[in-house]
Design a protein around this nucleic acid. Structure first.
Lengths: 218, 218
DNA sequence: GCCATCTGAAAAGGTGCCTTGTCCGATCGG
DNA sequence: CCGATCGGACAAGGCACCTTTTCAGATGGC
């Protein structure tokens, strides 16, 4: 949703090209939006506050984005891309290992970065929900990708004779939903138990849901 | 958050007392809000639209509520009270039965009414998330009550020697999170499988999470 | 029947925010 | 150096919505 990036006639300014300066403004805006939404919620995100914190003029802002929702969508996309890459990387790194290793590892690869940046977690788990039709659809599309990854893992495990067949989509949904709820609860506590404990519990939960989930098929 | 209900000097009008008329306005407003938020989202809820659909003047509206958020909070409270009552009633009705009967029944008592009114489901599961600090806190407080109910069931089952001890809070969170995700997914589909199948799967899921959930304790 | 009260419709004022436009110092090519 | 470009600061217009006030018709007590 970002506006045209091709500022064809760019001049060097401050020792940096037009593209570099624009990328820098964008990075500053995303960082500022990340901080504002992650700590005060989307409702607190106004163009004025955003630009003030990012040291970007509102004029420059509207050259980059159509409005504040477009900026937030860009931020959200960035977060999704980042976490999606972690999952894919984790799955690639555990190639050949059993389901009960691969999926918990991928789940934690997805979640652990959020444990380290509670603002990001708030954005991804809370603020993004029900924001707008557009953002909601990218959220659901992304979740569908996660589901597909898990389903593929499950079906491959069945072929290898490593797991009984079941409604893998149901299992994936359960896993995502429960992991989200547990992680969010952990983050909202004032007295947070050790991350390592949480990680172990989440790993065990994943195994349970993938191997003991109902066999009822649609 | 509703304004003072005690319209001390009330006169009969249209054959109804002041309290009755006010209650009627409130009911119309809640029904209208339910419909608007449930179909178009909270962002589409404006006082003007709300009053138009409810056939209530904005003046009367502000006599009842401080603003649109207060009205929505009232609606949300009503939905929570209704579903909470279903859960409590279900638990009372299955008194003495084993954990694996009581909890699935309670879970479905909570969810099934939402299957029959997708607008309510959208409100409770989507629109309410991250709306405001105030509403978020009532949401979390309500969820905490649900968790406590499940934890109490689990501990009682342990005492009866019916289940192994475990981190019941973790189990409750997993159950709520996964059931929510599964139910929401079902509702968003265009081609929805039969409710009965969903109910069976959810019941089995509850049993799984309560009996096979990780034993790791905090 | 008369006056007070009630009620929804409509209008009017206020506010916050979005968005665009202007300004001015800073920087660069020549 | 000089004109041109750049980019943040600032201001102004506009819009949507919130909130209060006013109005006119309906109703009921007396």
């Amino acid at each position: 949703m970002r506006a045209a990036e091709a500022t064809s006639a760019g001049r060097v300014y401050g020792g940096r090209s037009a593209g570099e300066r624009e990328a820098d403004r964008r990075a500053r805006l995303l960082a500022a939006a990340h901080d504002i939404v992650g700590t005060q919620g989307y409702a607190a995100l106004t163009v004025e506050r955003l630009c003030a914190r990012a040291n970007v003029s509102s004029r420059s802002f509207y050259q980059l984005y159509d409005g504040k929702e477009a900026a937030f969508a860009d931020l959200y996309d960035e977060l999704l891309v980042r976490s999606g890459a972690k999952v894919v990387a984790s799955l690639a790194a555990t190639e050949g290992e059993p389901l009960a290793e691969r999926v918990p590892a991928a789940l934690l690869a997805y979640l652990v970065p959020l444990f380290d940046d509670l603002r990001a977690a708030r954005i991804v788990f809370v603020e993004v929900v029900g924001l707008s039709t557009r953002i909601e659809s990218t959220r659901l599309r992304n979740r569908e990708k996660l589901i597909e990854l898990i389903v593929a893992e499950g079906e491959a495990a069945v072929v290898r004779g490593e797991a009984a067949d079941r409604d893998w989509r149901f299992a994936a949904l359960s896993l995502i939903g429960s992991a989200t709820a547990v992680a969010l609860d952990w983050m909202l506590r004032t007295e947070r138990p050790a991350v390592t404990l949480l990680e172990r519990q989440l790993g065990e939960l994943a195994v349970t849901l993938l191997t003991a989930t109902p066999r009822t098929r649609p």
